[in-house]
Design a protein around this nucleic acid. Structure first.
Lengths: 258, 258
DNA sequence: GGTTGCGTTGCATATGATGCAACTGGCGGC
DNA sequence: GCCGCCAGTTGCATCATATGCAACGCAACC
């Protein structure tokens, strides 16, 4: 109907149902309506997915996400050394500062969260971030941090795909102002997100380096404006930088700080 | 070829490729060989999966698991209250005891790990358990714990599916001996896995109750025989029981210990 | 006891997934 | 530099496969 029409119909339908089932339990009738197909068609798709444990049938007859998906995900995440090494330091940082802490990594052409430590307290405002989700490459502290330290040609390649969008008044929404910001980041060694994607969300981020000294990830602290202002975040900046350096160290980076 | 043949072919092929891609990077040719189909067929499947971010194309042209899967998984895990409440106590327990700690839950007809805290140290022997993976219902400490406290008809329903298999000499491989073991577990309030699935893997597990007092999950400590004997595990038992009770408390269970 | 709504099964059909063959492009050997 | 090889990609004709239909089972509700 729209878009590239070389893709497999039934697989797309299956993906669609998986996504829906992940959100809330899905009845067969609902599944059929969502896809705009006959119930028998939806049934066959769901049965196939069930046999793969991608969805699971509840006692009530509805379908929800199955453990097969979770298992695959852990297989992928578990194989990331970075995540292993970073887990403990990030949790310490969270406890010391009280801020929500994120770990993000360049994976292919996108920057995705690979770990997140929430404030244990009842946050009235839960951050919408989620492990596995891609984050804006130019309108986030972790994105800009990774971008800042990327080799030029790699950065150009990534940004050539990007269509800039001005999410908020502070967004760096064109290549020139973004490049200037990246220079600043390299000079000071850390990045700020001053509500550049969501007005109320402030972050600071610091680079994490592998054994060859290349920046492969970034750690960040986040605050909702009403809870902690950007200045408060900056108060905790030394701890963040320490944490990032510590993780780099675990990865084999021999720090030569200047 | 075998089994029920009402399932969608292309979706099963897609699932197969996702699984392979999760294990190691998959070239197009390899994908086609694995499925026994033409390369163009494999290409279309992979492109469809790529558009859903279930797989991702690397610079080298191979396909690996994509962030879409991870995102879905976190969505499912994140919605589990139990996991949230249990995270901190389990990590404390790990630090106090040094043992690998697991959290398992009855989900549909299977018991799956929903959290795991590894020993931070270099375990020469990594446990094969993984979040999302199903664990034996009758040959594991967490499985037997949950089974022991299930309402009779529910337990019968679950065990009616089961074909008992004697993994090791200590396995409770028939309904009678298992039932006797479950009685013991109820009497003492915790369970042991004395190498019943893998000769070298020892566990102790304790039940976790929800606000209505129903056992919905179990926490366990694991040891490889060479590192910590079962007796050593039992030394830490009071801490495990405390932890499980604490989690139950967070879930709203008002403990009446006897 | 009829009626409604949901899930399931068998079957005929045509749609959409498939394999083929031709094309591209990069790499290495000669 | 040329050639051949191998991996990936594209267009198209074919038919296997996913699909919709209609009939059925079943429970809940009036």
């Amino acid at each position: 109907m729209e878009g590239d029409i070389a893709l497999s119909q039934s697989i797309r339908r299956a993906v669609d149902l998986i996504r829906r089932a992940a959100e809330h339990p899905l009845s067969l009738t609902e599944a059929a309506e969502v896809l705009g197909v006959h119930k028998s068609t939806a049934l066959r798709i769901l049965q196939t997915l069930e046999s793969a444990r991608f969805v699971r049938r509840t006692g009530a007859g509805t379908y929800v996400l199955g453990s097969g998906i979770i298992e695959l995900s852990e297989l992928a995440l578990g194989s990331m050394d970075l995540r292993q090494f970073a887990a403990a330091p990030l949790r310490t940082l969270q406890r010391q500062t009280g801020h929500t802490v994120h770990l993000a990594q360049l994976t292919g052409d996108e920057i995705i969260y690979i770990d997140k430590v929430d404030s244990p307290a009842f946050d009235a405002v839960k951050l919408p971030s989620r492990i596995g989700r891609a984050v804006s490459i130019y309108a986030s502290a972790v994105g800009k941090t990774i971008l800042a330290y990327l080799p030029t040609e790699e950065r150009d390649r990534l940004l050539s795909h990007v269509v800039f969008e001005r999410f908020t008044p502070t967004t760096y929404a064109d290549r020139e102002s973004l490049d200037a910001e990246l220079v600043r980041i390299r000079e000071q060694g850390w990045a700020v997100d001053n509500g550049e994607h969501d007005t109320y969300v402030m972050c600071v981020a610091a680079p994490i380096r592998d054994s060859r000294g290349r920046v492969i990830a970034a750690a960040s602290m986040t605050a909702i404006e009403v809870i902690a202002s950007l200045d408060q975040l900056k108060d905790s900046l030394p701890l963040l930088l320490d944490t990032a350096n510590q993780i780099s160290g675990e990865l084999g980076h021999t720090a030569n700080l200047g």
